[in-house]
Amino acid sequence: MKSEAVLERDAPESGDTLKFGGREFRSRLIVGTGKFPDHRTMQQAHDASGAEMVTVAVRRVNLDRTQESLLDYIDPKRYALLPNTAGCYTAEEAINTAMLAREVGLSDMVKLEVIGDQRTLFPDNEELLKATKALVKEGFVVLPYTNDDPIMAKKLEDAGAAVVMPLAAPIGSGLGIRNPHNIRIILEAARVPIIVDAGVGTASDASVAMELGCDGVLMNTAIACAKDPIAMATAMRHAIIAGRLAYRAGRIPKKLYASASSPLEGLIE
C-alpha cells in the first residue's frame, strides 16, 4: 500500500531518530508484553506497531508447569528488551530487580518503576530518585516512570536518567494526556528524551503526546486490551508518526475567528 510506504519512509529518511544510552531507534513507540490474549497475538501486534523496543516484567520462573517462554515470541535481533521493575514498592526491591534483569541478559536498560500505592499505581518519587541514583552508579541506562511533575523530571534528569517517562494518566486507565501543560513544561526544560508512559487510551492520545513534542510513547493496555490488538497497534504506529510529523511541521496558532482560505478577489457577482 502506497500510503503505508510513505509513512514507513518519513521518519527514517529525515534522520529523525530517538537516541539515548548509546542506542538509536527509528520508531518512537515502545510496546509492552502484558495482557495480550496470547503470545501469538502479541507477536503480531508488536510487528504491526513498528516498535523496536518492548518492555518485559522480571519474575520468578514458574516451576510447577512448563510453559512457553515469552522470549520465544520476541526476536532479540529485531526488538531491544526493556526490562521493568513493575510491582516494586521500594528502591531496594527495584534495584534488586534491575540487577537480576541485567543478569538474565540482553539489556542494561531498565524501565524503573517504584510504585507508591496499589490503587493508583502512582510512583513513589522519593524511592524512585534513590533507585535512579543507585542504578546510574551501577552503569544502567535508567528510564524512570514518574508523575507529570516538572520538578521531579528535572531531579531525575540530574540524577543521570537517560530518559524521563512521565505518565499521561494512571497506568491502564486509558484517560489520555491529563495535563498537557505540565508535559510542555517538562519538555521545555528537558535535556534528555521525554517518553510518555502509561495512560494512553487510543490513537489520538498518542498523537497528542507527540504533537506536544514528546520523544516517544510507551503503551501496553491500549493495544493489548483493544478488541483487535493488531489493528490498534497499526493505528498507534500511524498516530505516533503523524503526531511527530505534525510537531515538526509546526502547527498554526489557534484563533477565535474564521480566516478564509480562499481569496476574496475574483468572486462571482
Binding site: 508484553t33 495480550f36 522480571v58 537480576l100 543478569e103
Partner: peptide
C-alpha cells in the same frame, strides 16, 4: 546474584534460598 559462569561451581547446601528469575509478559505495574 550468582554469575552464570559460576553455576557449575556453586554447590547447594541445606537451608539455601534460591530465586530463579526470568522475563515475563508485562508492561507496567
Amino acid at each position: 546474584i550468582i554469575k552464570r559462569d559460576l553455576y557449575e561451581r556453586t554447590p547447594l547446601r541445606t537451608g539455601d534460598v534460591l530465586e530463579v528469575i526470568t522475563f515475563m509478559a508485562g508492561g507496567a505495574s
